[in-house]
Design a protein around this nucleic acid. Structure first.
Lengths: 152, 152
DNA sequence: TTATTGTTGTTGCACCACGAAACATGATGT
DNA sequence: ACATCATGTTTCGTGGTGCAACAACAATAA
């Protein structure tokens, strides 16, 4: 299970060096094989260890290609899904269409989200966090309701 | 199983060079033999490994030729279906009627969708994705409902 | 506390494979 | 016989991959 946000620089070839603390777990889980795709709600990428991704892929195959909504999901998720593999130095190459989608240039945030990672450009991440905090401090009703269960 | 989108240039003869990462799987699955037809819902082509296509063809032959809707399906799909075979350089020739249907000229997208590929002209693909994302970010009700099942 | 050594992470560089394009050869049909 | 179309070949440029040197950090001992 992955946690925490790390700032990382892409190298000149668009490769992302996975923080050392995650490398061992990733070799065990999935032999370094992962799948990266876009997040359809937010301007970021999602990075799944292969076994985690396969669960999602299985669900996607069961959708009907005749239903426009389901088809759209398949197009967005599968169409942008890309195999990535950690190289011998623990780096992985993000394909240029994906980099483009998330606006990745140099500085990015790798954010552990339990069974997956999110990849944000640093600017987008800062912006998102600022907005989330603002909503929170203004007292979003739905969020407050959910927090009742949490006793943080 | 095929995933991800790749940009490809048609050569002057209308041949499409299959990305190296798919070539091996295609020689194994179907000895490079595939069938290409039109997508009846979208301005793109569908490319099936021969064994996958045969499954579909079987279903189509079982439809009643008396029912006008089913008859139309047969006409559209079978009528446009075209055998393609990878040449020794991993390229395949797209017939000109099919190129015309999808508006393929030079730049195209080859999109892996598990058991098949979609072939889009680059413009059409970009347009489609932009629209899909827009629909998504405006909060399509039906899609949100489905996403509940996905825990992406 | 500081110096030395070892280990881990990062960056730059060089090689190789793949893809794009132009060209060459062979088949087909008018 | 020539034009046209399909298939094969070669060359060149770009981009992805691995390697190796260097920098940063941690550990140990003087």
């Amino acid at each position: 299970m992955f946690r925490g946000a790390t700032t990382i620089n892409l190298d000149s070839k668009g490769r992302l060096a996975i923080p050392a603390k995650y490398r061992h777990a990733l070799s065990i889980d999935c032999d370094g094989k992962m799948v990266c795709t876009i997040d359809i709600k937010q301007p970021c990428l999602l990075l799944y260890p292969l076994p985690e991704w396969q669960v999602i892929e299985k669900k996607l195959t069961q959708l009907s290609s005749m239903n426009p909504t389901e088809r759209r999901l398949q197009r967005l998720l599968l169409g942008h899904a890309d195999d990535c593999e950690m190289d011998k130095n623990g780096r992985l190459l993000i394909s240029s269409p994906l980099r483009l989608h998330a606006g990745l240039e140099k500085k990015l945030m790798l954010v552990g989200q339990l069974n997956k990672f999110e990849i944000w450009s640093e600017e987008a991440w800062q912006q998102q966090i600022a907005e989330d905090l603002k909503v929170e401090q203004e007292g979003d009703f739905e969020l407050n309701e959910r927090l009742e269960d949490f006793s943080l």
